[in-house]
Design a binder for these strands. Structure first.
Length: 266
DNA sequence: CTGAGTGTTCTTCG
DNA sequence: ACGAAGAACACTCA
């Protein structure tokens, strides 16, 4: 779930439910997802107010009244759950923030690949993680420059958060499909037009996904996404040619593409 | 029971 | 030093 559009949804959810709240308690149910000492996290958070949010790619940042920054990364299966004082702790909650109004905000993550960290500023985190500008704000020239020096398959390069922060596995596939680029092409070998095309569809896909709050079923029918078998409908044929979509593995990740619409370059 | 999964990070090798 | 490739991480659900 959590690629850029989902994390943007989580950011808005956080703003709608927890912004301006003061933290009353912090319960770490699984210290695996907390990069700092749980006692330190508690000491740094309790009594502080959430004053604002930021997002770069898949990273959500929460500003604290102390001036410090809380980082939330959702891994493969993370999400936020805001729930009433009387409600039960959601299943797979790893960290629970008790808010001054009695409500709770849960960091839920079955697979425990998510991480919570504490730092001094967003730029500091951005540098430490080696993140490019957020994919939605990434200038074409930066994107071109990043691809030009990489000989790895374009699919793998697109997943590198130093190239276009926020692009994840289905978005990379979607970009390659809509720009008609084969996932195994070497990044540096793409033409200027292909690179520009990828950048353009990246913005299109991300803006549309954010607008639909990453609710896949609402995406237009020409999206390859519908061929992944995620929705309850059966695996759809290629939206471009109605042929069968291929599934392979690139860089260890499941990769869907259409062999007819995305031919290998000569 | 086996396998696949939306991500990052570390290690190894060149 | 850096890029590429692969493994590891941890756990659920189909």
């Amino acid at each position: 779930m959590p690629e850029l559009p989902e994390v943007e949804s989580y950011r808005r959810y956080f703003e709608a439910t927890a912004l301006h709240q003061t933290v009353r308690e912090v319960e770490v149910l699984d210290s695996k997802v907390v990069k700092v000492d749980p006692d330190y996290l508690r000491q740094q958070l309790v009594g502080q107010r959430f004053t604002g949010t930021d997002r770069i790619g898949k990273y959500l940042f929460v500003h604290l009244s102390s001036g410090r920054v809380l980082l939330l990364h959702f891994g493969m299966t993370g999400e936020l759950a805001h729930y009433a004082p009387t409600a039960e702790l959601p299943r797979f909650t790893r960290v629970r923030f008790g808010l001054a109004n009695g409500y709770h905000l849960a960091f839920v993550d079955p697979r425990k690949f998510g991480r919570i960290e504490l730092g001094d500023s967003v730029p500091q985190f951005q540098a430490a993680k080696g993140l490019s500008a957020d994919a939605l704000k990434l200038p074409l020239d930066n994107f071109k420059a990043a691809l030009a020096k990489r000989m790895a398959p374009i699919k793998s390069v697109l997943l590198d958060q130093a190239v276009a922060a926020g692009v994840g596995n289905w978005i990379a596939d979607e970009m390659l499909f809509q720009a008609r680029v084969h996932p195994l092409r070497r990044a540096a070998h793409l033409t200027q037009a292909e690179t520009a095309g990828l950048h353009q569809v990246m913005l299109h896909i991300l803006e549309l996904a954010v607008a639909h709050e990453a609710y896949y079923r609402d995406f237009p029918p020409y999206f390859l996404l519908h061929s992944r078998g995620w929705t309850d409908a059966p695996i759809a044929p290629c939206p471009g040619c109605a042929g069968e979509v291929a599934k392979t593995e690139v860089g260890g990740r499941a990769t869907y593409f259409c062999p007819r619409c995305q031919p290998t370059a000569p």
